[in-house]
Computed example of a mutant assay.
Amino acid sequence: MSLQQLKPQIKAIVAMQNLSIDERLLDICKLLEANISYYNWVGFYFKNGDKDELKLGPYVGEPTDHTIIPFGKGICGQVAISNQNFVVPDVAAQDNYIACSISVKAEIVIPIFVNNENIGQIDIDSNTPDPFTEADERFLEFVCKEVATFLT
């Protein structure tokens, strides 16, 4: 299934007001992981209250010990500070990378903004080297904008 074909399904999940926020986030993770072959770990991190750290939210994939990530640490922690997308074609080439699994080869992190504030992010790990394209970036920006609509 193409990224464009997934957009209506994302909108349908977002519109399911009978589900909790976490249930909708998990359904989005499941949809992406099941339909995009190189999305091997899909999860959300959110700012942890007033602390300068991220807390793991719903995700699918291998369990991770990284349930709390300080701002500035790893790819997710850097996105929390920079407010910019971060695409890592080769995690082995990154100095400030937190390894979740030895099988991970690449990562993409896109921030989620609510009222112009970076409140979290979607984090995707891939076991495929350099799989992420500009199309993935644009699609995940769309996902984050949709997610922001029910986090307000």
Rank of each mutant, 00 (worst) to 15 (best):
L19E: 02
N115R: 11
V143M: 08
D136W: 03
A12S: 14
I102E: 13
F86R: 12
Y97W: 12
M16Y: 00
V87A: 05
E62K: 11
M16G: 01
W41L: 10
G120F: 07
I110F: 02
L151F: 10
D27W: 01
T149A: 05
Q5I: 00
L151R: 14
F132A: 07
D27K: 14
K145R: 14
E33F: 10
I98T: 09
I36C: 07
D52R: 11
L140V: 01
V42F: 07
I122T: 02
K55S: 13
E33R: 15
V147D: 01
E141T: 14
T149M: 06
I21N: 09
F71E: 02
K30T: 12
C144L: 02
F46R: 09
K11I: 12
R24Q: 06
P131F: 06
P63H: 11
Q84P: 00
N48W: 11
N35L: 07
L140P: 01
F142Q: 10
I122L: 10
E117M: 10
L56G: 06
K51Q: 15
D136N: 11
I28G: 06
P89G: 04
S37A: 14
D52P: 02
L31D: 05
S82R: 13
E146Y: 01
Q84F: 02
K30A: 04
S2Q: 11
I102K: 13
A135T: 10
F71I: 00
G57S: 11
L19A: 02
N116M: 07
Q94N: 13
D95F: 12
L6H: 08
Y38F: 13
S37P: 04
M16N: 12
F150V: 07
Q17T: 14
D136L: 07
K47N: 13
K55C: 04
D95Q: 14
A106D: 05
P63M: 10
I98D: 09
S126D: 04
C29G: 08
E141A: 12
L140T: 01
D130E: 11
K30S: 08
L6C: 08
K51T: 11
E23C: 07
P8R: 14
L6Y: 08
P89K: 06
T133D: 03
L54M: 13
T149I: 06
N85L: 09
G49R: 10
E141Q: 15
I122Q: 01
D90G: 02
Y45C: 01
N18P: 00
Y45V: 05
E137A: 06
S2D: 15
I108N: 02
G61F: 04
P129W: 00
I98R: 10
A12C: 06
I102F: 05
P8L: 11
I10A: 08
I10S: 09
A135S: 13
G43T: 01
N115E: 14
F46D: 00
T67S: 14
E23R: 13
M1P: 03
L26F: 13
I81M: 13
N40E: 07
C144W: 02
I81F: 03
T64P: 06
E134Q: 12
N118V: 08
V87N: 05
N83M: 01
